[in-house]
Write a protein that binds this DNA or RNA. Sequence first.
DNA 1: CGATGAATTGACCGATGTCAAGTGGCGTGG
DNA 2: CCACGCCACTTGACATCGGTCAATTCATCG
Lengths: 233, 233
Amino acid sequence: MNTKPTAQLLQESKLLRTLPHNALQQLIARAQTRALARDQFFLRQGSPAVAVYLLIDGHAKVTQVTPDGHQVLFRIIGPGQEFGLLAVLSDLVYPLSVQTLDHATALLWHGEVLAQFMERYPALAFNALRILAEHNQELQQQYQALLTEKVQQRVAQVLVRLTEQVGRPVNTGILIDLPLSREELAEMAGTTLYSVSRTLSDWEDRGWVESGRERVVVRSVDALQRIAWPLPE
Amino acid sequence: MNTKPTAQLLQESKLLRTLPHNALQQLIARAQTRALARDQFFLRQGSPAVAVYLLIDGHAKVTQVTPDGHQVLFRIIGPGQEFGLLAVLSDLVYPLSVQTLDHATALLWHGEVLAQFMERYPALAFNALRILAEHNQELQQQYQALLTEKVQQRVAQVLVRLTEQVGRPVNTGILIDLPLSREELAEMAGTTLYSVSRTLSDWEDRGWVESGRERVVVRSVDALQRIAWPLPE
DNA sequence: CGATGAATTGACCGATGTCAAGTGGCGTGG
DNA sequence: CCACGCCACTTGACATCGGTCAATTCATCG
């Protein structure tokens, strides 16, 4: 599935880039590996945050459920991306769950191990800070979007982001190369599966997308972009 | 205004706690001070992130405006709280603005200075990580709230949080000791000034709050809490 | 080929945003 | 010191987006 050699993937990851070679080697030596089938959990919301993960193959979704059962899908993780970062801090609990979307493999370290490396190699700590700061900004944008934008805009944004992150060119357009249900798309866009379904049907009529069971092909990214980020005035 | 001596405030701040004494002394020695009148900006969304701030007196609001003019108020900063943290990373731009709500004073450091201290004192980096992780969780909660809860719930939550953060007991209840307009409350709750106004009028009829021009007194925190976080089933 | 779960579509309605008009209090200037 | 005007706030009327529920269709897999 994954074409890149693992070592290169790690070197280019947001978390481990800029680390000295020997540090990277030591880290790799101390990593555990965990491979999971589809729909399995790497970590669960509410359980003690003991390990930091770095996905090296496959995809996973980051979700959170409210006390009343509503589910939110914050982002999708692909190879080279990390999660569970806050395990470097002690005595915390994961605020969200990470569940595989296909067969996926991750490296993991005990939080304390990574904390020790951060003390020795500040670059690692700065990388972590940068990652958290980016997450913050993305969350702020999503909050804004939920507050000010209409459902169609948000769905369009989700689809455009997905084409960028997991898009694969096929003859009729760009396939979103993950099995995402309407429900999951809805959880990403902050709406209901019904609204997603209607929206996709509409766009299918216009020839902008083709959609099927847990499958979407975007035929015109342009059109979706115009919906997602309409020109000012 | 502020009763605590500054040194103690810094020692207890989330950012600087657990620092060795001498490090704290050095940091204080290198800090600049900035005092602003009401409605002035410590920093502006979009300008280069050069300094990290720590408020030592007064209050400020953290806001963000969308391209289309909508404004969001993410949180209110009081003495001992930091902002502009991401200035420790180079070449970034502030994603939001921080504006005073009353006469306020902050210490500030050039981002690079703080970055150097983080390299020397990892505890500082961990404090920063913890702070960012907390912000993340708060944002996630706010997102959830916007998605699943009704306006009244969210307004109640805002008021309860405000009583905790800036509440001052008065004879009829707890005064929110800051001049916050309906508009600003709306920006905090993710709604419009009209809905806030209606909600407060309603609660005033029920005797749960007293409200006036840029002024709210909560008479029954209990009642608001029942609205904010209704008992499951 | 049948069963299971995903997706579609229609009907309904309620919460809340928008717009417009009016009220009231506070500060400023005459 | 009073009056005027501004600005925060209130209240009503209205429209609409999109969530909810129910019924149906569709596709995929065993």
